[in-house]
Amino acid sequence: MHELSIAMAVVEQVQEAASEHGHDAASSVSLRVGELAGVVPDALRFSFGLAAAGTVLEGARLSIEQVPGRARCDSCDTEWATGVPPSLWCPECRGSAADLVSGRELRIAEVRWTAHDDLPVSALHHEES
Rank of each mutant, 00 (worst) to 15 (best):
E20M: 15
E20Y: 10
H21V: 07
G22Q: 10
G22Y: 12
H23Q: 13
H23F: 13
D24V: 13
D24F: 07
A25V: 12
A25L: 09
A25Y: 11
A25N: 11
A25S: 15
A26Q: 07
A26S: 13
S27Q: 10
S27L: 04
S28N: 08
S28E: 15
V29N: 09
S30Y: 01
S30L: 10
S30R: 15
S30C: 14
S30N: 10
L31V: 01
L31T: 02
R32G: 09
R32Q: 14
R32W: 07
R32A: 15
R32V: 11
V33R: 01
V33W: 06
G34V: 00
G34S: 06
G34P: 01
G34K: 00
E35K: 09
E35T: 05
E35G: 05
L36W: 10
L36Q: 08
L36S: 11
L36N: 09
L36M: 10
L36K: 09
A37S: 13
A37F: 00
A37T: 11
G38W: 00
G38I: 06
G38P: 02
V39T: 02
V39C: 08
V39Q: 03
V39G: 04
V39A: 05
V39P: 01
V40K: 10
V40P: 00
V40N: 08
P41H: 03
P41G: 04
P41L: 05
D42Q: 14
D42W: 12
D42A: 14
A43R: 06
A43T: 07
R45H: 10
R45N: 07
R45W: 01
F46T: 07
F46Q: 01
S47G: 03
S47D: 02
S47I: 02
S47P: 05
S47M: 03
F48V: 12
F48G: 06
G49A: 01
G49F: 00
L50D: 01
L50F: 11
A51Y: 09
A51D: 00
A52T: 01
A52L: 07
A53C: 00
A53I: 00
A53D: 10
A53E: 15
A53M: 11
G54T: 05
G54Y: 06
T55K: 06
V56H: 11
V56Q: 04
L57D: 06
E58W: 11
A60R: 09
A60W: 11
A60M: 10
R61K: 15
R61Y: 04
R61P: 01
L62H: 08
L62P: 03
L62C: 11
L62Q: 04
S63D: 14
S63K: 13
S63G: 14
I64F: 11
I64T: 07
I64S: 08
I64H: 12
I64Q: 06
I64K: 12
I64E: 08
E65D: 13
E65I: 08
Q66N: 09
Q66Y: 00
Q66G: 03
Q66I: 15
Q66V: 15
Q66M: 15
Q66F: 00
P68R: 10
G69D: 05
G69N: 04
R70F: 10
R70Q: 14
A71V: 08
A71H: 03
A71S: 12
A71G: 09
R72Y: 05
R72V: 11
C73L: 03
C73G: 04
D74I: 00
D74V: 03
D74A: 13
D74K: 13
S75G: 11
S75H: 13
C76D: 14
C76K: 14
C76W: 06
D77Y: 08
D77N: 14
E79K: 13
E79S: 15
W80V: 05
W80T: 06
